[in-house]
Structures are given as C-alpha cells and as structure tokens.
C-alpha cells in the first residue's frame, strides 16, 4: 500500500516537531526515516499510524484519506522500540491478540487462529517459545515476537519505531539482515525510524533524512551518499571532511586539487575515501600535512592527518584507503604527506 503525506505539521507547545512534511512512499518499499534525536521522525511515524494526530495535513494510504481514522481502523502494524508486549499474556496469546479482538463477523475460528499464530511464530523462528511470557525472553526474541504480533492482522503498512534501538550490537546486526530478508519475502510497505545512518543504509531501500521537522532529502541509500542535497545530509550520512574556503590559508587545497574552476560554493565536503595521500618528496616546509595516526576499520585503514595552519592552529583531516594500499606507501607517524582530492561536494 502506498503512503502519501501532504502538508503535515505538528507542534508540541511552542516546539515545532514537524513543519509542512510532504512525502510519498511507493508500495512495497522498505523506508528508513533517518535523523538526529528530536528531528520529528518518531512523531511522523506515529502520525502515519494514527497514534498521534497532526495539527494540519492529510495522511493517504493507498490513495484513500485516512487522516480521521482511528489507529485501530488504519490497518497498520506498529512495532514499538521497547516491544510493548502484553506482559500478562504468553507469546502465543500476544500474537493471537489481533485476531481475537476482531469483530465477531470477521473473527477466524480457534483452529485458524492456532494455525496462523504458529505459522507466524515459525516465520520469526520462535515457535518453541510459544508458551513463555515476555519477561522470560531476550530483547531480540521480544522484538521478533512484537513483529509477529504486528503481522498477525495482515497490516497493509508496517511501522517500526527504532526497532533495533534497545538491542545489543551483535543482535542488532543479525536482526537488520533478518528484517531485510523478511521484507523481501513479505513485500509489505514498511517504514522504520532510526537515528543510525549505518542501519538506514544497510536495511532500507529508500532513506528519508529528517532534520528539525523537515525533510532534507529522500532517495536510495547510494544516491543520498553520493549526492547529498545539502551540508546537513552530507555530514549526517557517512564521514566527511569539511573545508571552509573563505577562511585564510587555503591555498594548499588548490594544490591538492580543489581548483577554483570547480568551485561551486563556500564549503567543500570531501569523503575520506576521496582523499589520496602519498609520501611527500618535498623538503622543508612545503609538505605541511603530517600523518598523525591511523586506525584499522577491518578492510580499510582510517588515517588521521594534521594540517598545521600558518596561524599556529591545527586541523584534522581524515582519509581512508584499503589496508594493502596503505602498507605499500610505507608511511609512519610524523611523515609529511601530499594530498590529492578526487572529488568534493560543494555547499554554500
């Protein structure tokens, strides 16, 4: 089911949580609402669910205006950050709840409910826990039960609020992959909220970047990374080096490849992997970028460089390159290096 939000605004007192949001989500996508805390992403998700009402604007599901529909009438599945499992019910009864509360005319028989619940529990690979209570489960198990419970009512939209936020790092990694595969199998339009850009990039087919209650950019993860729409997105998604070209003492950047001809703004953002370094052959003070330290990030090396300014200040620059390439350079701490900038994003 497609989702269309038009002119959604929401204020809490004097604080503007959402400012005129327009968003279209095509059917079958797995969308990440990504942004720093307080950017309004959870509020937006709750407005889509009907758990919160917008001050203005419309929510259309499959082209039908559902703004005035109650949360129980919207046909959505909602997964809460802290699971919100019914603590006094077994796992089985939790998953069965959505079926049991259907109006009598739509309610399936007990045998159908049993089969469906066990199917769902098998889908999340936890059928063996069906007679346990929520407080006997681990965080990752609870989250999967919460997902099975939301799926039981066959929602046309699945909404997940920071679904991995309360989990251990290793469990989170497994569940991300699992959610992606599950979405691939079920193909139900899904939106999840996250503040973790890595998680958004890894799981989502579409990423919506929010900040201060406004949408900064929407697109495929790769597009957003390669073509950030503005300085906020560029900084928020992935690592970036920021160079302010109006400051003094930036001639060296031109030497490094940021020529005036390419210049399209006052600020240049350069991804660490777009900086190539070589051992400087120049004597004296020409090579005034020095290698300070490096860290291993698995297959990549992150290199911290220090640029000594003429006014005595220093600035750190980060570069990344594959392990073996770095080894071939035979660099050690304190060496002077030459930089070459392959690509930059320009902002005003």
């Amino acid at each position: 089911m497609s989702i269309l939000l038009s002119n959604i605004s929401k204020k809490f007192g004097t604080f503007t949580a959402l400012d005129n949001i327009n968003l279209e989500i095509p059917e079958g996508e797995l969308v990440a609402l990504l942004g720093p805390s307080g950017c309004g992403k959870t509020t937006l998700l709750r407005i889509i669910a009907g758990l919160e009402s917008a001050d203005q604007g419309r929510v259309l599901l499959s082209g039908q205006d559902r703004t005035d529909h109650d949360v129980s009438q919207r046909g959505i599945g909602f997964v809460f950050q802290h699971y919100a499992l019914f603590r006094h019910m077994t796992v089985f009864e939790n998953v069965a709840f959505g079926l049991r509360v259907k109006p009598r005319s739509e309610r399936p028989g007990e045998a159908v409910i049993r089969k469906k619940v066990h199917d769902l529990l098998n889908l999340v690979q936890l059928d063996w826990l069906h007679d346990r209570y929520p407080d006997q489960l681990s965080g990752g198990q609870r989250q999967r039960i919460a997902l099975a419970r939301a799926l039981a009512v066959e929602p046309s939209v699945l909404l997940l609020d920071e679904p991995f936020g309360a989990l251990d790092a290793s469990v989170r990694k497994d569940l991300r992959q699992w959610l992606r595969n599950l979405h691939h199998d079920l193909n139900v339009t899904s939106i999840f909220v996250t503040h973790d850009q890595e998680e958004a990039m890894e799981v989502a087919s579409q990423v919506v970047v929010l900040n201060h209650g406004q949408i900064e950019q929407q697109g495929a993860p790769g597009d957003i990374y390669d073509n950030p729409a503005n300085a906020f997105v560029s900084r928020f998604i992935g690592q970036t080096n920021v160079f302010y070209l109006e400051e003094q003492d930036v001639d060296w950047l031109q030497t490094a490849g940021l020529s005036n001809a390419q210049r399209q703004g006052k600020v240049a953002h350069v991804r660490p992997h777009d900086i190539i370094i070589e051992k400087s052959l120049a004597d004296g003070d020409d090579g005034f970028v020095t290698l300070k330290d490096w860290q291993h990030l698995g297959s990549l090396i992150r290199i911290e460089l220090v640029k000594n300014g003429s006014n005595g200040g220093t600035a750190s620059i980060y570069a990344e390159m594959p392990n073996d390439q770095f080894r071939r350079l035979h660099l050690s701490r304190g060496d002077k290096v030459d930089l070459r900038i392959r690509h930059a994003h320009w902002f005003h």
Partner: peptide
C-alpha cells in the same frame, strides 16, 4: 505502550 499496541492491533 501496551495500550497503544492493543489499539494498533484493532482492539
């Protein structure tokens, strides 16, 4: 949240 979850399930 448990009440919200119940409502979202159609109760």
């Amino acid at each position: 949240q448990e009440e919200e979850a119940a409502l979202s399930l159609g109760a």
